[in-house]
């Protein structure tokens, strides 16, 4: 069974009440949502729908914007890639946020240049994850101290990302060279063994790692079948009568 986009298993009741009422537009709820973001960062929970509501409050009341909360929300949404959450958050940010720094630094009063820079940096990470360029993702994350600052508030960021990467791998891979997997997971030697054996439950055999068969990586032939009901032909049949020969 799927889970509706607006559902979050760990959402507290008072947040649910705000989201379902008009208080979701009330600027006074901003601080409640902000605390909830902090809580999600600390407790490794995640609530996209509530975070989008906060970004909407910022969209309507720019003076309430807290840069740190915005970047924390974006970093949290990276941890659920390849879902569209990161993009959905971006859509609610000010339209100039993705304008390249070169044009923006030329402006005298680009007030939130730091936010804009941070968002663009995170967007780079999002695209690398989206493109499954995992080794480049880890290299980029290490390449700039700003990244360390940005992900600092999100407890277990690297672990959460690693689990998502492992998940996407398990969907497409039955067997992979150890060296490739090491670069994808950004782990070596003992740490690698521990994660692959312990967390993923995969087998390391010399220079290859074997991923047990699952529904996604067995690559069974699919049969495209169409269930056609008679009433779907009603139109054709009616036409046949309506149109004079």
């Amino acid at each position: 069974m799927g889970v509706p986009f607006d559902y979050a298993p760990d959402r507290p009741e008072h947040i649910d009440a705000i989201l379902n009422g008009l208080d979701r537009y009330n600027p006074e709820t901003t601080s409640i949502f902000q605390e909830y973001v902090v809580q999600q960062c600390e407790e490794k929970t995640y609530d996209a729908y509530a975070n989008l509501a906060l970004l909407k409050l910022y969209q309507f009341n720019p003076h309430l914007t807290k840069d740190e909360t915005i970047t924390n929300i974006l970093v949290k949404s990276l941890t659920v890639f390849p879902s569209p959450d990161f993009s959905l958050c971006l859509h609610l940010l000010p339209p100039h946020i993705l304008t390249p720094a070169s044009t923006q630094s030329a402006l005298p009063a680009a007030g939130d240049a730091p936010l804009s820079e941070a968002v663009q940096k995170l967007n780079v990470l999002n695209n690398l994850l989206g493109q499954a360029s995992y080794s480049q993702f880890w290299a980029t994350l290490d390449s700039d101290d700003l990244y360390a600052d940005l992900v600092a508030d999100v407890a277990g960021f690297e672990e959460l990302i690693r689990i998502r990467i492992a998940l996407t791998i398990s969907q497409s891979v039955r067997e992979i060279e150890r060296s490739v997997l090491e670069s994808w997971l950004g782990l070596q030697s003992e740490g690698f063994d521990k994660f692959v054996n312990g967390v993923c439950g995969w087998e390391i055999e010399g220079t290859v790692v074997k991923v047990p068969l699952n529904k996604e990586n067995e690559a069974k032939g699919t049969i495209v079948r169409e269930n056609v009901k008679v009433d779907q032909f009603a139109r054709v049949i009616r036409r046949a009568y309506e149109q004079p020969a």
Binding site: S172, R174, E175, I176, E177, G221, T222, E226
Partner: peptide, 22 residues
């Protein structure tokens, strides 16, 4: 899974499963 063409990677080999029958 909407793919009409499924596959998995096995080391350096890609094993697509053949597909589309109607």
């Amino acid at each position: 899974n909407s793919n009409d063409l499924d596959y998995a990677m096995q080391g350096v080999r890609i094993a697509p499963s053949s597909d589309i029958t109607c």
